[in-house]
Computed example of a mutant assay.
Amino acid sequence: MKKLICIVFSSLLLAACSNENSHPETANEPKAKKITVQTKAHEYNYDVVTSATTTTFGTNPEPKWTPEQKEAKMFWSVQPPTGIIKGNYYKNERQFDGGNKGILELVTDDSGKLIQVEFNELASETYYESKYANASKRLSDYAFFQATNARTDDTLVTWVNGITFLEGQMLAENRLDGNFQTVKGSSTSARNGMMPLAAEMKDWVKKPFGFYYYGIAEPLGNGLTARLQVVTENGEIISAKYDEIFADQKVEITDSALQSLYRQSKYYSLDYETMTGDDFVAFADGLEKHILQSQDLLDIPKQDLASFRNYEKVATKLSAEIDGAGT
């Protein structure tokens, strides 16, 4: 009789069920379990393993799907958790695998429980596809680049699938070290980048380091989500990052000219940068510069821009949280 194993990722509203009968593997591959991960918006089907998988990089298989068929089969989400998150902040980063840069950020509550785990990776300066050199693999169109490659025809997963799956486990199990399941076909960054960084931080989160995180993400109703993340050190603002993330489905984006940018963010999208002349990056960097000078999310020059009005909405709410913490 088949045994059913269920794992509940309550923090991300995920439910994963796996079947112990594994799929046939090659002699060099670890055995994989087929799991289904359900979210509010989508159901994922993954083969997961508990060790590294053999890379298919350098191979050039014949495509099994048309681009339209493959787009319908693949799905990943870049949406941040909505609402306000605040807690003790930790960050660890380093280069791995030929110059790719991994960045792991953690937030814990006062009891030391993980409440946010987020890994980002910047491709190396010498990345073989020059468009993505130094680009965010999470919030640019890098995952689409992976999806168009025939090497993902069997796994139907991208970098984002592998990382968000691992983040969910760390949150649900409230641990940073030991072995984890990873998505077959998307395990390299998880195992070589994220897991070593997390293991180094397992003792860090046992006590506050003096850094505190205030974050807010709020849907704007037009296929965009505004996100503002602030970090303080002993009460002083040392980082203030604002971004707007496009919806996971292009039909949710009301501006048809921007629908091709779904599952990307304005700050990190290479194509949005080309379309707008890097205006949003300059806007967001300018916001941070003023905030660091004034130490106030709202004491900044007014701008007649939709993005500035979006920023003010979330900044007003987050500023109240920061002010309340200081009283």
Rank of each mutant, 00 (worst) to 15 (best):
I85V: 10
G168V: 03
A315T: 09
Y128V: 14
L297A: 07
R263L: 00
P196T: 03
S11Y: 06
I163N: 06
A16H: 01
Y268M: 13
M275C: 01
A135F: 00
G168K: 06
G235L: 07
I84F: 12
L14Q: 13
H23M: 15
G277E: 03
S239R: 09
L224C: 09
W159M: 13
S130D: 08
T56D: 12
S186K: 02
E312Q: 14
F246A: 10
I237L: 10
Y272H: 10
G112N: 06
Q146A: 09
A199V: 04
I103M: 10
D154S: 14
Y311L: 06
N60A: 14
G223F: 05
S11M: 12
D255N: 15
I7L: 14
I216L: 13
E273I: 01
W65Y: 15
L139W: 00
V8A: 11
Q95C: 07
K101P: 04
T232A: 11
R309N: 13
E25G: 06
I35V: 15
P24V: 11
I322D: 03
A282H: 03
K40Y: 11
K31P: 07
S307M: 07
G168R: 04
L305E: 06
A16W: 02
T36I: 14
S140R: 01
Q229I: 07
G162E: 09
F211K: 11
F246M: 08
